[in-house]
Simulated assay, not measured.
Amino acid sequence: MIRIAAVTNEHRLQKNEALETIDFSKYDWCWIDFNHPTEAETKLLLTKLHFHPLAIEDCIHGQQRPKLDYYDDFSFFVTHTIGMESYREHEINFFWQNGIS
């Protein structure tokens, strides 16, 4: 599932934009959240956002060590946190991309 929250150039919050049709030029920044993406959604991460296949694979398969990988158009981070209720470790993966187009 992919969810998007974005702030427009007029500083308004937009939620639930579709990745297939989003026009990034209308936004100052976007938060794109995905968890267990479908095969079609994974293809969008490759084609629409141009994320590297190995970075996407790291997100999907998990159990990565903390790291920071630099790619041409973005950086990929893996970090870990502890759940407040379960005290279990959780992996968090995120991409930082400047100038999405």
Rank of each mutant, 00 (worst) to 15 (best):
I22A: 02
D23C: 08
T8Y: 12
Y71M: 01
D23E: 13
I56D: 00
H50A: 03
K15D: 07
T79R: 01
R3G: 02
Y87G: 05
L68I: 14
Y70Q: 07
E91L: 04
H61V: 04
K48G: 05
L54Y: 15
P66Q: 01
Y70W: 10
T81W: 15
I4L: 06
E57L: 10
E91H: 09
W29N: 01
L45S: 00
E89G: 11
L49E: 02
K15F: 14
R65N: 15
E10T: 15
D73P: 14
P66F: 02
D33Y: 15
D73F: 10
A55F: 04
I60R: 03
Q63C: 12
Q64A: 07
H80F: 13
G62Q: 09
I56C: 05
T81A: 07
F34A: 04
V7M: 03
L19S: 03
H50M: 08
K26Y: 14
E89K: 11
E41R: 02
W29V: 03
I100M: 02
T8N: 02
M84V: 13
L46Y: 11
E41D: 10
T42H: 06
E91V: 05
K67A: 06
H11I: 13
L46N: 02
H36Y: 11
R3A: 02
N16A: 06
E85D: 13
H50G: 05
Y71N: 03
S25D: 06
Y87D: 04
